[in-house]
């Protein structure tokens, strides 16, 4: 075996320690969620899996309102994804490809909205939605979540489009493509993975959001809003299973978008 200097050993020890800090809580909630109900109430709890059981998860899934709220959460997240991409991606393209008066102003305005408590705006929005008859609907939550996601979508798509050299589009234009054709045949295929990553992140953003969803709905809750509203009256199995269920998409989606981590966050903040 190759000899490692002390500094390398310390580095790996610190790395593992930090890893443990992040992973241990995830392991524990998974452990709790897949234990039978009596183990959930047990104390002291086993720290290694003793018996695998779906009892706790099924109890959560079968609780009243959970499945409906899951369905609603998915619809809201999909709506948010579609609307924010449809509205935001063209703006991202414009920022990436054109020089025009007002470009920097627009960009700065978008960046500065990120330094802004957007979800708080759900309170005045709720009042307006009541007047418009939109209150307590999936669409109202999706509209709010789109506002939350839009600045992010614009900046990310802009950085994704900017990563394709403009030369490529121009070359296509000299070879017989119209402007739209050049976008369709060259830029779109090349940016598809990046745009997909942005879309997935928008989905997660909406799936996770709880404050605005809880304000804007009453009976038609999304999953986080539903869990939040009943949380403090719920038994432990419901809480543990719910926590784990909310967490799962995060773990899966991060797998898909990990290559785009810096496209999504690193560059956006500049």
């Amino acid at each position: 075996m190759k000899h490692w200097p002390w500094s390398r050993i310390v580095l790996h020890a610190v790395a593992l320690l930090l890893l443990l800090w992040v992973v241990l809580p995830i392991y524990l909630i998974a452990l709790a969620a897949f234990s039978p109900r009596d183990v959930v109430y047990q104390y002291p709890k086993p720290l290694v899996p003793t018996q695998f059981s779906l009892e706790t998860m099924l109890f959560f899934m079968r609780s009243s309102g959970v499945l409906d709220s899951v369905r609603r959460s998915v619809i809201v997240a999909l709506l948010t994804l579609v609307v924010s991409m449809a509205v935001g991606a063209p703006a991202g393209y414009a920022l990436a490809r054109y020089i025009f008066p007002g470009r920097d102003t627009f960009r700065i305005a978008i960046v500065s909205t990120r330094a802004f408590p957007i979800v708080i705006l759900s309170i005045p929005l709720a009042v307006s939605f009541i007047n418009l008859g939109l209150y307590d609907s999936t669409i109202s939550v999706a509209l709010m979540h789109t506002a939350l996601a839009l600045p992010f979508t614009i900046l990310v798509t802009s950085s994704v489009f900017a990563s394709v050299p403009v030369d490529l589009e121009e070359a296509a234009m000299t070879l017989g493509c119209s402007r739209l054709g050049a976008f369709w045949r060259i830029s779109l295929p090349l940016t598809l993975p990046g745009l997909a990553a942005a879309a997935i992140f928008t989905f997660v953003l909406s799936w996770n959001e709880v404050f605005a969803a809880a304000i804007l709905t009453l009976r038609n809750r999304t999953l986080p809003a539903h869990v939040l509203s009943v949380l403090n009256e719920s038994p432990l199995p419901f809480r543990f299973a719910g926590g784990f269920f909310l967490l799962v998409p995060a773990l899966i989606f991060m797998l898909f978008i990990r290559r785009y981590l810096f496209n999504l966050w690193g560059r956006v903040v500049r």
């Binding site: 930090l18 890893l19 992040v22 992973v23 809580p25 995830i26 524990l28 909630i29 709790a32 109430y41 047990q42 104390y43 002291p44 709890k45 720290l47 992140f201 997660v204 799936w207 996770n208 959001e209 709880v210 986080p224 869990v227 939040l228 949380l231 432990l236 809480r239 543990f240 719910g242 926590g243 909310l246 967490l247 998409p249 995060a250 773990l251 989606f253 991060m254 797998l255 990990r258 981590l261 966050w265």
Partner: peptide, 30 residues
């Protein structure tokens, strides 16, 4: 990847995860 995973975890889920740790019959006491 693992350091970045919490990026996609909601505050509600995080709250519940740590509730499982800090609650009286939870993992910290264990």
């Amino acid at each position: 990847y693992f350091y970045a995973v919490p990026l996609a975890i909601s505050d509600l889920a995080a709250g519940i995860v740590w509730f499982a740790i800090f609650t009286q019959r939870g993992y910290l006491n264990t």
